[in-house]
Design a binder for these strands. Structure first.
Ligand SMILES: [Mn+2]
Ligand SMILES: [Mn+2]
Ligand SMILES: [Mn+2]
Ligand SMILES: [Mn+2]
Lengths: 225, 225
DNA sequence: GATAATATTTAGGTATGCCTAATTAAGAAA
DNA sequence: TTTCTTAATTAGGCATACCTAAATATTATC
């Protein structure tokens, strides 16, 4: 009599996982916005998910939700599918990195465990997706990264881009046109404290780029000594 | 205001396409059995599909259904997805040929046109799936094969296996264990007219195999002069 | 601490796609 | 042609996952 999941359920749990990393408990409206669903519908679903056996969510009226262990397992399982698929679509099928997300979002619910396993094998068990996000391993442990934002860098520092946390295809294409993709090397030239703009150069491209905090907050780097 | 399809609709249309190749019009019960759905439900769905704009089915009460052009297009589109996916799963991900069908049956509804196109490119536009079934091309034309059944062969004839029309994983595994897969070369040794059994040898395997008509009717071959 | 603004929940409804049971139509046999 | 059998349809329901509008709880502001 085990619980079974649906597309929708997996999407809810994955969204709650992602949102709760920053904020702990996740509020109904927050979740609703993230999923593009009305708050009323979200209330209905989280109520259901918190009453399943075993429950996937811990929910108290007006207090938001957080994942139970069972719920987190499904979220991570889905996230592993998603990120492996992104690598797969990019490396094997040649999708550009700004298009992998949408396709993976549909496929993640449909592939079998065998598909997952074969994919991981063919790709050599990658640890990061094309945007630099960590892929949970087979036992669903997530390698956690030290988080330095590009927005925290200051002039003369050099760094390597590790992660671009955004899903907007337009922004992603804009960044990759500038060479700003995971593993690219950059150097900070200037910082203006009033608007938080960062001026930087991309190695092997001789371009000088200026980016605002809306963007630099989403880019994680590791600093080169 | 174009019609849009769902998983279910695609499955219905694909099933009707497959069944109508043999029999022309498709009867409600026949379709119901093939889909594993109650006849009552099938009546409901085919009614709906025949009343869409444009209709996918031509339906008259108690007379069964056949595909309209619009319906056939969707059936072929889905079939192309299915069979390309089978090749893909087999060649790229290393799935055994008896497991590709189930996985492709879920994925066929979910992949984008871009996924289809990339897959076809990577595979070099294959014309047949791992069971030898023809893959509709991009314009949805189906290369049609001359149909000689293994059951029609007689002693001393040599032939190459072209197609194995069965979805049962057990049978497929049984056949591949004997080397009886598309492109294998065989020679007929004996035929017994009472039960229709065929005795044959598989090239490079020295095994002598006896198969009944239940099986040999499903295997298509091309004869070697 | 009352009130206003915002967040959340409840109530009532819709579309899909399936089910069983009861009814009716079609086709075959007498 | 009447009768029997089988096939197909209708009627009435159910589960999932959404929606809008109305009601209520929480929280922030005065
Ligand atoms: Mn998995
Ligand atoms: Mn990603
Ligand atoms: Mn297609
Ligand atoms: Mn096939």
């Amino acid at each position: 009599m085990k619980n079974q999941t649906s597309q929708s359920i997996e999407d809810y749990l994955k969204a709650i996982y992602e949102l709760s990393i920053k904020d702990g408990r996740v509020a109904t409206t927050h979740l609703a916005k993230h999923l593009g669903i009305s708050p009323a519908s979200v209330t209905g679903m989280i109520k259901k998910l918190s009453q399943m056996e075993p429950p996937y969510l811990n929910y108290q009226k007006h207090q938001g939700v957080f994942l139970t262990e069972a719920g987190e397992r499904i979220a991570l399982e889905t996230l592993r599918h998603h990120r492996l698929l992104e690598v797969f679509l990019h490396e094997i099928l040649g999708f550009p990195w700004d298009e992998v997300h949408e396709e993976a979002d549909k496929l993640e619910h449909v592939i079998s465990e065998k598909f997952e396993e074969r994919m991981a094998f063919v790709l050599g068990n990658p640890e990061h997706d094309p945007h630099g996000d960590p892929i949970p391993n087979k036992e669903l442990n997530v390698p956690k990264a030290t988080m330095i934002c590009l927005s925290d860098l200051r002039p003369h520092q050099k760094a390597i881009i590790k992660r671009v946390r955004d899903k907007d295809p337009k922004l992603l294409r804009f960044l990759s046109d500038l060479g700003l993709i995971p593993n690219a090397e950059i150097e900070i030239n200037d910082y203006s404290e009033f608007d938080g703009n960062i001026h930087l150069a991309v190695k092997n491209s001789s371009k000088n780029v200026v980016l605002g905090p809306r963007i630099t907050d989403q880019i994680h780097v590791s600093i080169l000594n």
